[in-house]
Simulated scan of single mutants.
Amino acid sequence: MRRPVGLRLRAVLTTMALTATTGWILSMPTASAATGSATGYAAQNGGTTGGAGGQTVRATTGTEINEALCNRASTDTPVIIEVEGTINHGNTSDVSGDSCDVTDDLIDLKKVSNVTIVGVGRGAVFDQLGIHIRESRNIIIQNVTVRNVKKSGSPTSNGGDAISMESNVRNVWVDHTTLEASGGESEGFDGLFDMKNNTQYVTLSYSILRNSERGGLIGSSESDRSNSFITFHNNLYSNLNSRTPLLRGGTAHMFNNHYVGLVESGINSRAGARAKVENNYFEDSKDVLGTFYTDEAG
């Protein structure tokens, strides 16, 4: 794979995406309780409802998020965790419980189901603390910012990914989020939105991904083709080097997205992948759609 030629960090004065009917749309809303229903592939396979119908818990620290997961009756008891404030390493500690498997260096949704994490009030910022979803299903993440998660340097979290999913994950809806870094791999960052090892039925909607070398991947290698049924719609991708996304195998649908300042490449469909790409807008970007850095075409 070619080395990146460097990032062009710049201010972006728009948070607009595209709609199928009217062209330009709304800016990102202020934080509020989760609303609406999952769209795209996350609405299939039985749908994605998160913690609907369960207890609502307010959290202002990472420890309180862990406690909300661990205090449930079981690993699949529905819960809505309303988050306000900055969540970081300093206020996140490990918690014990039969209904969770959490840690102190990331927000770990491991072997759980029926969970909503939603930013409310003044907003929720996960600062240098990534969100990891593993062997889980029916998860909603909404109205949050995840920024500057590192895999090297200090502190480290989640392998440098803002949000990552792996190992038999089903039905995840990530909506109205901002995922951002402050550079590339040489600065210690990795991907913003990664899926691997049999992750399916995921939607990323109305979100901003910016200022990173890597937007995200679907499949960790050319042989990891078990990930599929992913929707990306009404998102803004700004000042990224590549991977918007990198798709290895599987099926994905990208529509109504706005791409600005892609340095090396954009939607990279390879290794037998199938990407339906429609009604997107590419601005000041290179190699926006195709198969790149491999002979195995998508």
Rank of each mutant, 00 (worst) to 15 (best):
T61Q: 00
D127R: 01
T291D: 08
N239T: 11
L204C: 08
I25N: 13
T251V: 12
D295I: 14
V202H: 04
A20K: 15
G85Y: 00
L106D: 04
D224A: 12
C100F: 07
A43R: 11
G188E: 07
E187P: 02
I141T: 02
R137T: 13
F232T: 07
A52E: 11
A181K: 06
R210L: 03
L240T: 05
S205H: 07
E222R: 10
E185W: 09
A271C: 11
I80V: 14
L18D: 03
N143G: 10
D76G: 11
V174G: 03
M28I: 14
R248V: 04
S226Q: 14
L289W: 03
I131D: 00
T48P: 07
G216D: 08
M16E: 15
D175T: 10
I218H: 06
R210C: 03
A59D: 00
L26C: 10
N211H: 10
V125I: 15
S99W: 06
Y41H: 11
A38S: 15
N66F: 00
Y293S: 13
S37L: 15
L129F: 02
V263R: 11
V169D: 02
T231H: 07
S157R: 01
K151D: 08
F193K: 06
T145N: 00
S238K: 07
I208G: 03
S154W: 02
H176A: 04
G188P: 12
N171E: 07
A43N: 15
V12Q: 13
G153Q: 05
V174F: 04
G183R: 02
R122Q: 10
N211D: 09
G54F: 09
R72L: 06
N143V: 03
N45P: 14
Y237V: 08
G216T: 07
T291N: 08
I208W: 06
A11R: 09
P4E: 11
G53I: 06
E264I: 05
A17M: 07
N279A: 15
A271K: 05
L13H: 15
L262N: 06
A68H: 01
D127W: 01
N66A: 02
T156H: 04
S238L: 08
T178E: 00
G250I: 09
G261H: 10
Q44S: 10
A33N: 08
N168Y: 10
F229V: 07
T103Q: 12
I218N: 03
N148F: 01
S207K: 05
T49C: 09
A31M: 04
S93C: 03
G272P: 08
A162N: 05
R243P: 06
F229H: 14
D127E: 09
N114R: 14
A33F: 01
